[in-house]
Amino acid sequence: MLSMKNISKVYQTEKVQTHALRDFNLEVKEGEFIAVTGPSGSGKTTFLNIAGMLEPFSGGEFMLDNVNVGSLSDNERADLRNQKIGFIFQGFNLIPDLSLYENIEVPLRYRGIKAAERKLRIEECLEKVGLASRAKHLPQQLSGGQQQRVAIARALAGKPRFLLADEPTGNLDSLMARQVMELLENINSEGSTIIMVTHDQELARRAPRNIQVVDGQLADFTLYQNKSSDSVAERVQQSMAEV
């Protein structure tokens, strides 16, 4: 359902070209839970941004549910993001002036869902993350873990096919991190496909599939148990040593 072939991303400054991703290949099947790890600056976030259509890529082919993302206009990408993808950010990214209810409502409004249905979905999602009683609170009245649960509720409300999580537990203490991870696992068990970028090896190991981004290229543990490329394997070991 998500397929990246030879994706590359080049950041061009005045004199320097930086290759954030090169020859990046990935196939994601429906219902997978993938943890993406890798050293800082390896291209994890760039991969996630491209997977979430938050930024354009420089070359290669990216198919999302049989749609060729490279050929879409800005508006079409925004609509596709809205319909297919739920984002969970490290910094939660809740809108501070909006109540929890209104925060979850944001993507639903962009999709043009009617008020009555919005209400149903929001209440259902708040219920799912255990914050139904606090719909009218503002984000700042909540703990970090609670805020991240609201952000997850917001990501779920649109019933997306993909959840993209960028260090979802990065700003949380270990107890809260575990709660959030459990929530993600539940969501995955209900059928949602999750791609999660994380630094936390322990959390990553809980995911059924682990991939590692090194120097802008992919090292897929599940794949490379069978057929491995030496150069990539070496680089992985090297980088593991660094971490």
């Binding site: 508006n75 925004a78 993001r81 809205n82 984002f87 950010f89 944001v106 962009y110």
Partner: peptide, 8 residues
């Protein structure tokens, strides 16, 4: 964030 959530 709004753009990421699907705002044109």
């Amino acid at each position: 964030t709004r753009r990421a959530l699907g705002a044109r």
